[in-house]
């Protein structure tokens, strides 16, 4: 099949970018979206041109490297799917496809489709951990039974891959879904109780410092999250935050 690609090209964070047009023939249905971009890059390279830069690594939907705003939707039209697992069979022959980077104040563009998501790391560094040293003498893993329901809920929150689709699809560029997923995981587990209050306060504080917006409950984040992280986590974080602030 043949595609009309409109791809954002930008030399570096200080330069202005713009949309470039590429016509690409010979795209196969079984290609993933990133393989289609490989195919385009191969063509560009054979013509002696610079390839389109984009983030990618595991290509099995778990590392969270790939991003891309495809036709105005984070990770493209297929729900619950990262760009690397989106296949070209979801597109039509002759279709025009817009490819842009994730856009947010806290995600500056590095080059072409690559953005800097280190703000996410800094939110995690502010408190997303349980302070336990590696000693080899921690208590036996089965001494604290955890109700299956809580363990499963914590797990569901913990499956966030940190791709940033929630931020990119939020009109306020809010990182509430990302931050709340981690806060939820630990607040649901007995191990997370000791630092429960300081954790939520510090993480939310860092989130605000990074320049992410506020949440206005539109739910776009959940709808476009490739891992289906629930907005219930945001509600939980708000509750945790309120409680912690009052106790402070």
């Amino acid at each position: 099949m043949k595609l009309n690609l409109k791809i954002w090209r930008q030399k570096n964070k200080d330069s202005k970018g713009k949309v470039h047009d590429y016509e690409l023939d010979g795209v196969e249905e079984d290609m993933s979206f990133l393989e289609m971009l490989d195919f385009l890059n191969n063509k560009l390279l054979n013509e002696g041109q610079e390839p389109v830069a984009f983030d990618h690594d595991c290509r099995e939907g778990i590392c969270g490297s790939c991003s891309l705003f495809i036709n105005g939707v984070a990770h493209g039209p297929e729900r619950g799917t990262t760009t690397c697992q989106l296949h070209m069979r979801k597109f039509k022959d002759g279709e025009t496809v817009y490819v842009e980077p994730f856009r947010a104040k806290a995600f500056p563009v590095i080059k072409d489709l690559i953005v800097d998501r280190s703000s996410f790391d800094r939110i995690q560094q502010a408190g997303a951990y349980i302070s336990v040293n590696t000693s080899g003498n921690t208590q036996d893993a089965n001494t604290i039974p955890i109700p299956k329901h809580n363990a499963d809920e914590a797990f569901n929150a913990a499956t966030c891959i940190g791709c940033g689709a929630c931020v990119a699809s939020c009109k306020n560029s809010s990182a509430m879904l990302f931050t709340s997923a981690k806060v939820s995981q630990f607040s649901l587990l007995p191990q997370g109780q000791v630092e429960r209050e300081s954790r939520v306060l510090n993480m939310v504080n860092q989130m605000d410092l990074e320049g992410f917006g506020a949440c206005t409950n539109t739910g776009a984040c959940e709808a476009q999250c490739p891992k289906g992280i629930s907005v219930k986590n945001i509600a939980r974080m708000n509750r945790e935050y309120l409680l912690a602030s009052v106790k402070k």
Partner: peptide, 25 residues
Amino acid sequence: EVSTNIIDQCVAQGVPFARDYGGLL
């Protein structure tokens, strides 16, 4: 030998391993 320490350590860190209905791993 150290394999058993790993599980203890990871659980202490809050890794949500699968559990059965009794709440055990």
